[in-house]
C-alpha cells in the first residue's frame, strides 16, 4: 500500500468470501434435504458432518485461519482437542452406566 513502513496483511479477495458464501448456502440446502430422507443412523452423522465442513470453511477462509500464525492454529487445535475430551469423557460415563456394575 501507500505507506512504505506499514506492512499490510494478506487481504482476502471478495471472490473467496463469495465462494464460501455459496458453499455455505449449498450446505444448508443439503442439510435440510438430507434430514427429510431416512438415512437411519447416518441422519445425525451427515448433518453434523455438513456443519463441521461449513464451520471449517468459515474458520479457514472467512476468518483467515489459513493465513494466521502457527500459534493461532495450534491454539484452535488445542481447544478443539479439549472440547472433544469434554464430550468424549462425559459421554463415556453415561454410556457405560448402562453396563451396570462389574
Amino acid at each position: 500500500m501507500s505507506e512504505p513502513n506499514h506492512n499490510e496483511r494478506h487481504i482476502t479477495s471478495p471472490t473467496v468470501y463469495f465462494a464460501v458464501y455459496v458453499a455455505l448456502l449449498a450446505g444448508v440446502g443439503l442439510t435440510i434435504l438430507a434430514s427429510y430422507h431416512n438415512l437411519g443412523i447416518f441422519n445425525p452423522i451427515l448433518a453434523l458432518a455438513i456443519s463441521i465442513a461449513q464451520a471449517g470453511l468459515v474458520v479457514l477462509f472467512t476468518m483467515h485461519l489459513k493465513d494466521s500464525s502457527k500459534a493461532t492454529v495450534l491454539s484452535v487445535g488445542c481447544a478443539l482437542f479439549i472440547l472433544m475430551i469434554l464430550f468424549g469423557m462425559v459421554f463415556m460415563d453415561y454410556y457405560s452406566r448402562a453396563w451396570g456394575s462389574w
Partner: peptide, 22 residues
C-alpha cells in the same frame, strides 16, 4: 489435568467403568 476430573465423583454414581478409566 483435563482427563481426570471425575475422580471427585467416584462415590457419586458415575459408572464403575468410567471410574476405572479416570
Amino acid at each position: 489435568g483435563f482427563f481426570v476430573w471425575a475422580h471427585h465423583m467416584f462415590i457419586m454414581g458415575i459408572s464403575s467403568y468410567a471410574a476405572l478409566v479416570f
